[in-house]
Design a protein around this nucleic acid. Structure first.
Lengths: 329, 329
DNA sequence: CTGAAAGCGCTAACAG
DNA sequence: CTGTTAGCGCTTTCAG
């Protein structure tokens, strides 16, 4: 159906080896010969078959971005940013990117689905067993938005601790002392980082914030609104609610409205991720921007370094955050 | 590195052909023999190499979902739903799914990147040349959320016309006569369908809606707010704004607020897609639900039919919509 | 700089 | 039911 290297060889009058070189190592074939090959290829609509190439090279030049999180949406806005960063970087180096879900790979990790990429970037809550499995198959693996102590693996994360500090210090600078955190049950890593940071930083600033100031909820608007209702009904009502992402913050605003509280006058609200909804809410949401694009770029770079056999690859890369102040706090 | 069919053959004492069969057509090898093969495979951590298999079979058992739209986010909530539908269906049949952007494929369509999937589902505004190119390479192709007159290709779309009617009739039932449409410059297909439907239906109901009642804008909150401001400043101010997606509707609500108008008392607002933001807005947004999941499932089913060589595959599949009434209208 | 030839790991007739 | 034997399309020594 599609023409092969043999067709081109025949039409151009050179050997298949030369055709192969013309496409893979152009500089190793004389200008004139190369011309002939390309012309023939043009005529025949030939282009190298990636599968055969992968087979011969024992390498696919493809990498995967694996989303490790349950939930309906495969890519939410935050992961889409990471994904774009990975694309940007992998395009620069002619690597192909395939996006998939961990669920997909888990099911049949021991099946034929593997060996089609040279490496993988695992985003979110990857299971350690998946990592071992992949590594043992000889794949290069890096983690993004997650860490895995005890594993020999490059990780790219956001500065969670610093980010939480930025939010808290901003809130304190606006006079808030009773600050509550509405923490979504995301991946254990993220939840834990933000939880711990909140407690430590609040304590170091002498805020009256113990674990009671943190309320867990599911990552949905309604769950957040419900959890926040409880928070806002306490006698010592918090004056500020720090949602660990924008969805939760939206839920908090909703809870405030239902209780007849004004934002930000009666209660300030902040989110994390700086997603599109921030601009849709009323008032607009103050949110901590996490540089997902950069995280994606860096994780792709780490993966390439791994693939290139480099040593001394940083095991941890931390990307800074930035607070975007808007009307809600 | 990884063991091959030869290793398993040796260890289990059967030929490689039998090993191959044990994995591909288990029923064609005696129970006892199969056992032996699987045990050996277990020991060796063997699993068939998908690339070699694809090479021999001349078939990859992989399909692609190509997102054909520019813009920062590779997968927005609506496309993520389609994607989930595709996944659901393709998992059922052991097809692997790779997600990619059209930009990615365009760049190097003539390069090695091809021939790694048996078929593709193109979502959104696919260029006709891409379709021809893919089809000429022998790939099975289907379109989702788009149509391409003149092409021999199965398309799966939402009932745009009926959806617009549902919204308009609902609005009219609530007494609205001056209804304006805030139309986002999405893919030409979608824009055109909604535009035309609006005009025709409004006219058939005797509404005073000519093309002036439709205002185009970019698909961002701010662009929508700006466009809507103009709409709401007219002497014969519309009493209802029909945004062609939820983002635009959010922009409309924002414009209304800025002008001191109450939603829905002074102006009603409706959206399309029924995304998560509907529940975050105040009041919550009435929106037309488009069944992206079903669209995804159906397009995957069409693709499989194509792959299976079936004939009489419907060229057009229309999925019904449903209005979700909330506080904004 | 170019060609010949040996694979890469697996499948699919075709025999037996 | 199982083994033999050609490939699938390309890369890569190794010679020339």
């Amino acid at each position: 159906m599609n023409s092969t290297i043999y067709d081109v060889s025949r039409l151009s009058g050179v050997s298949i080896a030369t055709v192969s070189r013309a496409f893979s190592n152009p500089e190793r074939v004389r200008e004139h010969t190369r011309q002939k090959v390309f012309e023939a290829a043009e005529v025949l609509h030939y282009s190298p078959n990636a599968i055969a190439r992968a087979m011969a090279r024992q390498r696919t030049d493809k990498i995967a971005f694996l989303i490790c999180k349950e939930g309906a949406t495969i890519l939410d806005e935050f992961y889409a940013r990471i994904c774009n960063g990975i694309m940007g970087e992998s395009n620069r180096t002619d690597l192909e990117l395939v996006i998939s879900t961990a669920a997909d790979w888990d099911l049949t990790a021991s099946n034929a689905k593997n060996k089609q990429v040279d490496g993988a970037i695992l985003g979110g809550n990857a299971r350690p067993e998946l990592v071992s499995e992949l590594q043992s198959r000889g794949l290069a693996v890096v983690l993004v938005n997650n860490r895995m102590p005890g594993f020999d693996i490059p990780c790219v994360v956001s500065d969670e601790y610093g980010g939480v500090r930025q939010v808290l210090e901003y809130l304190m600078s606006r006079g808030h002392r009773r600050i509550a955190m509405l923490a979504g049950r995301f991946s254990p890593y993220i939840l834990n980082e933000r939880y711990r940071a909140f407690l430590e930083i609040a304590k170091s600033h002498g805020l009256p914030a113990d674990t009671r100031a943190i309320k867990l909820c599911d990552p949905t608007v309604e769950s957040a609104a419900e959890a926040c209702r409880e928070l806002l009904s306490r006698p010592d009502r918090p004056t500020a609610i720090f949602g660990t992402n924008d969805i939760l913050a939206a839920g908090a605003m909703k809870a405030a409205r239902r209780l007849g509280l004004r934002v930000p006058e009666d209660v300030a609200v902040t989110g994390i991720d700086d997603t599109t909804v921030c601009g849709m809410l009323e008032p607009e949401l103050t949110s901590l921007r996490i540089d997902g694009y950069r995280m994606g770029e860096l994780s792709a770079a780490r993966l390439q370094a791994l693939l290139a056999g480099e040593t001394d690859i940083p095991q941890l890369t931390v990307v800074p955050t930035e607070l975007r102040v808007r009307g809600s706090a």
